[in-house]
């Protein structure tokens, strides 16, 4: 029997800090898991709050939270450690490096600015190409960090492209030189060095294809009906459009419910209604979902289930 290949769908949640991205992502993951879909929720935010949302310790390894629900928090430090383990056997071939202290060499490489982000992005790519889940939900970091994260395919692609070109040029010179040496021109070793770069390039291209496919990916912008959040979401939308990442839903969170007996609540609500009108005008091309502020704190399975139903039923 052939095993049917799963068509994984990806849900990404982004927005300004503190608007409720984690709650929305967690509620979405739980909703689909309860519907019988095998779901994985991944936090790419370096300041993880997924564990707090589900009220259980998650960590850097995939953990099963419910029958169909799995979760993981990408830890840049752990991802960097895995990078180190992946490349140490390769480096051990070079005896000379041992003399200088292999760990020191790697500590130096590991302290390059942005390397933890690249290691985390590599993890992100691994999960993106996973065929084990029906739904993968990404709880991303606040807008600026996420947009930088999503721009990494472009940056890495251009960097890897240049690296491959340099490697090819160098190997051309070395191969010519090798022909004059004994045992030269054996035909082996020619691809060594570019294989890993080629594989990384392919993974980036695949991730880019998935991210820009509206059938597979849905980026949801979470905001609150306040000016600052609206402006930031507008900017984020513009940048996402440039990257070709399709945005499906705009989720307006924390709207205050009607309560005529509370003057403060009424004043806040009136202000939010004005902003809501502005949101409906500015984002008329998108599906807007309005979520009212809950009287209870949004954490734990029970509350997340309630939120999931509000969002999708």
């Amino acid at each position: 029997m052939f095993k049917r290949e799963k068509k994984t769908k990806f849900y990404l949640f982004g927005g300004k800090g503190g608007v409720g991205k984690t709650s929305m992502a967690a509620a979405t993951a739980l909703y689909f898991a309860k519907k019988g879909k095998k779901t994985l929720i991944i936090s790419t935010d370096p300041a993880h709050s997924l564990s707090d949302s589900f009220e259980t310790k998650i960590g850097g390894e995939i953990k099963q939270l419910d029958k169909n629900l799995f979760a993981v928090e990408i830890d840049p430090k752990k991802a960097m450690q895995e990078y180190k383990e992946k490349f140490t056997p390769e480096l051990e071939k070079f005896e000379m490096l041992k003399g200088f202290g292999l760990d020191e060499t790697f500590d130096f490489a590991g302290s390059t600015p942005g390397i933890d982000e690249i290691a985390a992005f590599d993890k992100f790519l691994q999960y993106m190409q996973s065929k084990d889940y029906d739904i993968i939900v990404f709880d991303t970091a606040p807008t600026g960090h996420t947009l930088r994260f999503l721009s990494l395919p472009d940056i890495l692609d251009s960097w890897i492209g240049k690296m491959i070109k340099i490697r090819m040029k160098l190997s051309g010179i070395i191969d010519t030189f090798k022909k004059f040496l004994p045992f030269g021109d054996s035909g082996e070793d020619k691809k060594i060095g570019t294989e890993q770069l080629d594989a990384m390039k392919k993974r980036i291209e695949e991730a880019r294809r998935i991210l820009s496919d509206p059938e597979k990916t849905s980026f949801n912008i979470v905001m609150i009906p306040e000016a600052m959040s609206i402006y930031e979401s507008e900017r984020a939308l513009q940048i996402l459009k440039e990257y070709g990442i399709p945005v499906k839903h705009i989720i307006v969170n924390q709207t205050i419910p009607e309560n005529p007996s509370c003057h403060f609540c009424t004043a806040r609500r009136n202000n939010q209604m004005k902003r809501l009108k502005e949101i409906k005008e500015k984002f008329k091309d998108f599906q807007i979902k309005i979520v009212e502020l809950f009287p209870e704190e949004m954490k734990g399975f029970k509350m997340l289930e309630k939120l999931g139903k509000k969002l999708y039923d």
Binding site: K178, L181, P182, F183, G184, D185, E188, D189
Partner: peptide, 21 residues
């Protein structure tokens, strides 16, 4: 060194690559 290398290559009769040499 080069002469010795070529002589060894002739004796061994295998293209083992520059790294091996």
């Amino acid at each position: 060194l080069l002469v010795t290398g070529y002589a060894t290559e002739f004796i061994v009769k295998q293209k083992k690559g520059v790294k091996w040499w």
